[in-house]
Structures are given as structure tokens and as C-alpha cells.
């Protein structure tokens, strides 16, 4: 059984270490704010300058002035702080973000990834992804293993314009958790019942145990 999106979030969150500063991209990665972390404490940083936010606000308790980078009305944990955009990205480029978890169209065995421009698009959807990709200590991707029509998203090299070169440490998909090695994806974990052969069939790059 492949992992659900929630299970992908839970698996990836197991990699977080106590005290980490965590930045979550738009889409699937936002599920991570709901994952229980046990006795580990992490601090969620959002590009729009919100440091130390918590879960999404309950209905009726939203604050019109308080969104995360995915436009969700979030809450603030005790000890939260607000900075402006220059300082928020200074924290990113300054190397203070322990991990960014981003969605992606493609991930490559050489550590590149592509998440800002689709084929045929004149414009782009960069947001903070290039800054985060270039300067976070760890870049994790969270994505479906294949496109809707079944084509692999995990490739030897990206076919779309890349977001950053050689930075991806981990890729979590519905099939498992993988680490780009430069020439292959090394399996770190498989969803229950998923075989190595299934992963190989769904991946356009070598997959190693």
C-alpha cells in the first residue's frame, strides 16, 4: 500500500531533529504542521516573516493579519516572532533554516530539482523556493512518485528548468523515502508492501538498496 499524503508527511517529519528550524513549502508540505513530533520541538519559519507558527487556526478564531507562506490562517506558538521580508530571507540565506520541505514537479538523482516552471509556461512560480533551495541546510522534497498519467517524476536529470543544483538530500513520495546519490536514488524506506521492483518501474533513474 503506497503511503497517503499524511503518511508521507509523518515519515519525513521523523527525520527532523530536536530544535530544528523548519520551513514548509506550498501544498503537500503544509501537512507537516499537523504531525505530532513527540518530545522533539521544532520552529516553523514562513517566508513572510512569521517565526514559530503553530497549527491552522480553528474556524472562527482566524486572525486576518496572520497567514503562513501558503496563505493559511495559522496560530502563533508561545515565543513566536515577526520580522519583515528582508530579515526573513536573511535568515534563509544566512543558513539558519535547518530544513526546507518543498513540493516539486521533478527530482533528479544528481540532486537537482525543478518546481518553478512547467513546460510551455512563459512565467514562473518561484516564490521563496530558489532562496530556500540555495541556502537551507537540508532540502527535502515531498511529492507524488509519478505524474497523473503515470510518468516518472524521479529522473536521472531534470527535464524542466531547475530550482537549484545538487541540493536535494531526501525525496519522500507515496512509494518511499529516497536519497539522491549523484547517479541513483538510494532507498531509505519503502511504503508497506511496495517492492523495489515497483519503485524501479516507476523511476527513470537507477534505484539502489
Amino acid at each position: 500500500m503506497p503511503w497517503s499524503r499524511t503518511q508521507i508527511a509523518e515519515r519525513l517529519a521523523r527525520e527532523f531533529q530536536d530544535g530544528w528550524i523548519v520551513n514548509l513549502g506550498v501544498g503537500m508540505p503544509t501537512l507537516i504542521t499537523d504531525v505530532p513530533l513527540g518530545d522533539r520541538e521544532v520552529f516553523f519559519h514562513a517566508e513572510n516573516g512569521v517565526i514559530g507558527f503553530g497549527p491552522v487556526a480553528p474556524e472562527g478564531q482566524e486572525d486576518i493579519h496572520l497567514v503562513d507562506a501558503s496563505r493559511r490562517y495559522v496560530t502563533l506558538n508561545p515565543g513566536a516572532a515577526i520580522v519583515d521580508h528582508a530579515d526573513s530571507f536573511a535568515l534563509i540565506r544566512g543558513g539558519r533554516i535547518d530544513v526546507t520541505v518543498l513540493g516539486s514537479y521533478e527530482a533528479a538523482a544528481n540532486g537537482d530539482f525543478a518546481n518553478w516552471k512547467v513546460k510551455g509556461s512563459k512565467g514562473g512560480v518561484i516564490g521563496g523556493a530558489m532562496d530556500l533551495a540555495a541556502s537551507a541546510k537540508n532540502v527535502y522534497l515531498m511529492m507524488e512518485h509519478r505524474t497523473r498519467d503515470g510518468s516518472p517524476r524521479l529522473l536521472a536529470t531534470c527535464s524542466l528548468p531547475i530550482t537549484a543544483r545538487g541540493v536535494v538530500k531526501l525525496v519522500a513520495t507515496d512509494l518511499g523515502l529516497f536519497a539522491p546519490t549523484g547517479t541513483a536514488f538510494a532507498v531509505r524506506d519503502l511504503a508497506p508492501g511496495v517492492t523495489l521492483d515497483e519503485v524501479r518501474a516507476a523511476t527513470a533513474a537507477p534505484v539502489t538498496e
Binding site: 517566508e47 521580508h85 528582508a86 526573513s88 530571507f89 534563509i92 540565506r93 516552471k117 518561484i126 516564490g127 521563496g128 523556493a129 530558489m130 532562496d131 540555495a134 541556502s135 528548468p161 531547475i162 530550482t163 537549484a164 543544483r165
Partner: peptide, 28 residues
Amino acid sequence: PQGTLAERLRAAGAGIPAFYTPTAVGTE
């Protein structure tokens, strides 16, 4: 890139005409 946009504005306000950033290196 959003952080580059922010820093370009900050630099303009701070009298810094240009700067080097790691963001977008190696990209289109």
C-alpha cells in the same frame, strides 16, 4: 526569487547598488 526581490528593495533603500547572492545560481 522572493528573497532576491526583498534584498533588491532593501539594498535600494540602504544605498547599496548591487550585491551577490547564492540564490538562482545554476538556474535559467
